[in-house]
Design a binder for these strands. Structure first.
Lengths: 278, 278
DNA sequence: CGCGTTCTTGACTCCTATCAAGGAACGTGG
DNA sequence: CCACGTTCCTTGATAGGAGTCAAGAACGCG
């Protein structure tokens, strides 16, 4: 049912990304946030410290509670991050696509908040804290203090702080959207919103926006959207019968993008929660 | 039913805070995040630029979409922040207690994301952007560039950026908790978690932790927790019949704090959403 | 080919939203 | 001081969306 050619094209592209050892040759150079975070300098000065790590499915790149020491950029493959609450309940907090940064959640507390796990075989750039600091300090006046926090160790490295603020700000607005989705949207709208977001992010990562392979299981989707697994499955079927999508296990084709958008706009779900302004 | 003496004590304290005109005399000095944000320098150098503004109930301090120009610190009273989505649906995102900072949500995009509204008569410290920048620049080497973003205008002002990162980091972890609450908790657990948090924040603001007046309406609570107003009301009644709390309209007394905690720990609500780790 | 995993589908239940009505508090004006 | 409307909160009855339980199908893997 699905056309696999496009997938192959991107596999090639991704391999090209993998084969190149230096950041400047990386196909993701222009969109790579690690450049933003200072690895453009890194590359020429201390390149050897940017590790390109390959990860197998279900392997954790970093684990909740571990000491924060690096940030990561997805080179290829897909990842999910989650945390487990005191009662042992898992909450998937995000999915990471090629080009995305993760690991910054540890920067404030000094330990990673989330565990980040590969959904399939993939690779990441690991940019260690010391490397990051080293880079900026070399191009700025060094400072003597040894404050406990990352950003305090490198007061002159305002670039990092700026990128940090930018990334955190993005995180906050993304989280806000999720709060709204979980609180005020019915199941169908939650899923359609999710599909549209995934579609956009797939496109951003260099895939087709209307036809791709879902990188995560139904369980992951249901956990992320806080729905029962069966509900998600039923909704996929429903969207298919509405000719909005064509889905076969993880292969997804969006047949009617405007229709999908319309579902989101029209469906007003629960009305108390949807209370309008007076 | 409720003992009002404690309230009066704090009214006095709050009045003391209001009467003092300088930040160093303010009773909240030690806990004031504006100090952290640089107003300790402000106070001695450019004090006149910290405005102490009194706000009447339902008055907006800043509005969603307005150009970002200041951050605020609550001196007295209580505030709520909310945004209205494209479909005109309101989402209360937070409540602000004396000592809390708000308004930073505008720093990245340049416009405030949330509208912040007084729940009763209160007062805030308005610390304008220019004042903040001025303060740091005067104590550091000035920089020539005029980048569009706030933090780029003051590269040397790493203190601000650090505080910013800290405040944003707090916001993120608070938002994560809300996501978890909305997605994985049943109504009762959502409310008990909320009550416990309010209790702690009231204490932090100088009130009693087990007896206080709820500053927000049932409508605000229900909107924040994404529940029907009637559900919230019923749950209050239920908690009262369980002798966990005593509630009469907005006057709340927590009779059994461990019991309240136990409710949160024990109640496992929906089990699919509460899926444990394998 | 058998087995585990993942996904789908059906039947049923339950939590919470919705609709509806009434009571308590508050402000205002007579 | 009391009637009055308004707002806020409570309580009851009902309905519906999504969770839960259960079984079977499709796929991947050794």
């Amino acid at each position: 049912m699905m056309n696999n050619n496009t997938q192959n094209v991107y596999l090639l592209n991704r391999d090209r990304g993998l084969q190149s050892d230096s950041c400047s040759n990386c196909m993701r150079n222009s969109q790579c946030p690690s450049i933003e975070m200072g690895s453009s300098q890194l590359e020429s000065t201390a390149y050897s410290k940017v590790l390109h790590k390959t990860v197998k499915p279900q392997m954790a790149v970093c684990s909740s509670g571990d000491k924060f020491d690096s940030i990561y950029v997805v080179r290829s493959g897909f990842f999910k991050s989650y945390f487990i609450d005191t009662a042992g309940i898992m909450q998937v907090t995000n999915f990471h696509f090629p080009g995305d940064v993760f690991g910054i959640d540890g920067i404030e507390s000094g330990v990673y908040q989330d565990t980040v796990e590969a959904l399939d075989t993939g690779s990441v750039c690991k940019i260690s804290l010391s490397t990051l600091l080293q880079t900026t300090n070399s191009s700025n006046t060094a400072r003597a203090d040894n404050a406990p926090h990352v950003y305090e160790e490198s007061t002159s490295g305002a670039n990092q702080l700026q990128s940090l603020v930018r990334i955190m700000s993005r995180t906050i607005s993304r989280d806000r959207k999720l709060i709204f989705a979980l609180g005020k949207m019915c199941a169908l709208r939650r899923l359609t919103t999710f599909l549209l977001e995934i579609s956009q992010r797939m496109e951003h990562s260099g895939y087709q926006q209307d036809e791709f392979r879902l990188c995560m299981s139904r369980t992951d989707i249901s956990n992320y959207l806080c729905l029962a697994l069966e509900t998600v499955s039923r909704l996929f079927t429903q969207l298919q019968s509405m000719k909005i999508i064509a889905v076969e296990r993880r292969d997804l084709k969006i047949l009617d993008m405007p229709g999908l958008q319309r579902l989101i706009d029209d469906d007003h779900g629960r009305t108390t929660a949807f209370e309008k302004t007076g």
